[in-house]
Design a protein around this nucleic acid. Structure first.
Lengths: 354, 354
DNA sequence: TTGAAAGCGCTAACAC
DNA sequence: GTGTTAGCGCTTTCAA
């Protein structure tokens, strides 16, 4: 009764009174085969509930039509959730499946995840690397020559196709937007993985995108006219309590910032919370601009002015590039997508912008 | 130079001067085998960069150690992002991988996704079904007798292990919390997939969890003392513009609600936005309680009072139950986890609660 | 136009 | 304690 046995191509062959080869040809539509046979085989296959075993096909073909996605952090993050969705969608579009890992910014986990993916014979990998310098596990040999596309950040090797966003330019634009509106006391709150609590001295930033944001903020400070009067920089663990303390520290400074720039949503949330606790109205008593857009940042009143990155484009492109590399030889390239400022209401106009 | 060829167990056998079987035994540690051989084989395998091919092992074993996750909607949703993360984590913990699909509440996509998963020989499926009555694609035969765990909502068949949260009870608790605080004019904003715009007449709700929330709200209205003076019910497409209009309609009613209950975060965001536009302060001029917690709901000031569901527990349990079923026969069961109210500041105290 | 047979990489029953 | 061998389900030469 309970055969618990898959219907295989042999069963179809037997039921249809032809050979396995003929079934395969009929179903995959290759080679010469009589039209009538095709129809017959297909109807038989259908009627006995045949379902191809992708594993067997993959083993034979040496291709699994599966790509691996190794995401640092996870998809409770407002950037990676959308990126993941975009990647899955585009992969499906191109006939590929996606195996997913997340690694909490941990290099050991990343190595293990890559290992698992390869062991599962993925045809290629999309990777958000933990650190820009740690890529000894990504040699062509260790990767079985499988193509890799790096997203969101760069590695200090040009070996792979890399897709990033122009965070430095966008960060600068954000600062200029603020100073043009009359802000002269600025605060920068930058989440840096690997540090504990927060510090005011610039640490090593192992993630190039974050590094670029910091540089862009700095560019903005330099290029603002008149020069901002003060700028407080805080580098912070990506964690709620530390972020809260960092914001408190900023606001308690002798010359507190009238605007705080945050490098991600977690830091933004900390600003919102502390400002709320102190009865500071966003966009009035305290201004803020954050990296990465989200539905809630848009829905709040006033809406949060954000630097939006083209997440869906990035995800789609990553898949498209990866599969191009899987299916033919493609030279690695660096692609930078443009990020841009979405002006909502969280930046007070301290004076008329020009 | 570029062999582009995987190192196989044959290569290890040749390099180590033993047979394939011995290599397999040494690496998987089964059967009788000399300790020294094990060490030797392992070191050889390591040195020539051998990586097991899970595909081949899976084919042989008839088990892939992979589970399929078919999530309706996607992980930009504040519930499913966390659930997905929890599921991946727990699967990894138990030595399984996860293949993911999302289906935008579309039954055809769901069928295709399940088909793909099975074709990929997943050992079992975790499924968030589109509709409670549509499960013709989920017969034991079509599923190759693979186990399935249903999460978040129920199917109208007891065939599968089902894990849900006690939304009805929690919804009732939320309403009672409000009425005890003196709210007598209530608004209910319920997102229902499949409808266009919004309507005030209760439609068919194909999703049991949403249905339960509506029932729980209704229970709360019945059990409140004194009886609430008014209750406006709106059933709304899960979409920004429609939700905004629905909120406007509520607030423009002859007796507008002093509190709005929302069935999910999208609806909550609409309330926040319209309230903000009208200069209504949350927790003062207008109160709100929503299903599903999120970092931003907690960080806002005042914090949003929410009905939090034990998402991580649900995800972990789903995996644990599924794998139990994969690895041995287990009778389907229904598990209901408790949801609970997190009281923050979004409910005005119109009179002292008892 | 179709069939026979080899083989993808691995494991396990069976022999020695 | 180790080797031989068959076979998981499929595709694709090669031969008929």
């Amino acid at each position: 009764m309970a055969p618990n046995k898959n219907v295989t191509i042999n069963d179809v062959a037997a039921a249809a009174g032809v050979s396995r080869a003929t079934v395969s040809r009929a179903l995959s539509g290759y080679g010469r085969i009589h039209e009538k046979t095709v129809l017959h085989v297909r109807s038989v296959a259908e009627s006995i509930g045949y379902r191809p075993n992708s594993l067997a096909a993959a083993m034979r073909a040496g291709k699994t039509k599966t790509i691996g996605l190794v995401v640092i952090s996870d998809f409770t993050n407002a950037f990676f959730d959308r990126a993941t969705k975009a990647i899955i969608d585009q992969a499906k579009e191109l006939g590929y499946r996606v195996l997913i890992s997340h690694t909490d910014e941990n290099i050991a986990e990343e190595k293990a995840a890559v290992e698992t993916m390869l062991s599962n014979q993925v045809d290629g990998l999309i990777l958000v690397p933990s650190g820009s310098t740690q890529h000894s596990h990504l040699t062509p040999k260790k990767l079985n020559n499988k193509p890799v596309v790096i997203i969101d950040r760069k590695l200090d090797t040009p070996r792979f196709t890399t897709i990033t966003t122009g965070d430095r330019e966008a960060a600068k634009e954000a600062v200029l937007h603020a100073t043009e509106n009359g802000h002269t006391n600025l605060g920068f709150l930058i989440a840096v993985p690997g540090i504990k609590g927060f510090k005011k001295k610039a640490p090593e930033i192992p993630i190039t995108s974050v590094q670029e944001r910091a540089e862009g903020f700095s560019d903005g400070v330099s290029e603002s006219k008149p020069k901002p009067k003060s700028a407080i920089w805080i580098y912070c663990e990506d964690e709620e309590v530390a972020a809260g303390s960092a914001v408190e520290e900023m606001l308690d400074a002798d010359t507190p910032p009238s605007i705080i720039f945050t490098s991600n949503n977690d830091m933004l949330l900390a600003v919102l919370k502390i400002a709320g606790n102190r009865g500071l109205a966003i966009g009035k008593d305290l201004s803020v601009i954050s990296f990465d857009d989200s539905p809630w940042a848009a829905a709040m009143v006033p809406g949060i002015t954000v630097i939006a990155r083209p997440v869906e484009d990035l995800g789609h492109l990553a898949v498209t590039e990866l599969i191009a590399a899987v299916e033919g030889k493609v030279r690695p390239k660096e692609i930078v997508l443009e990020a841009h400022l979405i002006r909502r209401g969280s930046v007070a106009k301290l004076r008329k912008a020009k």
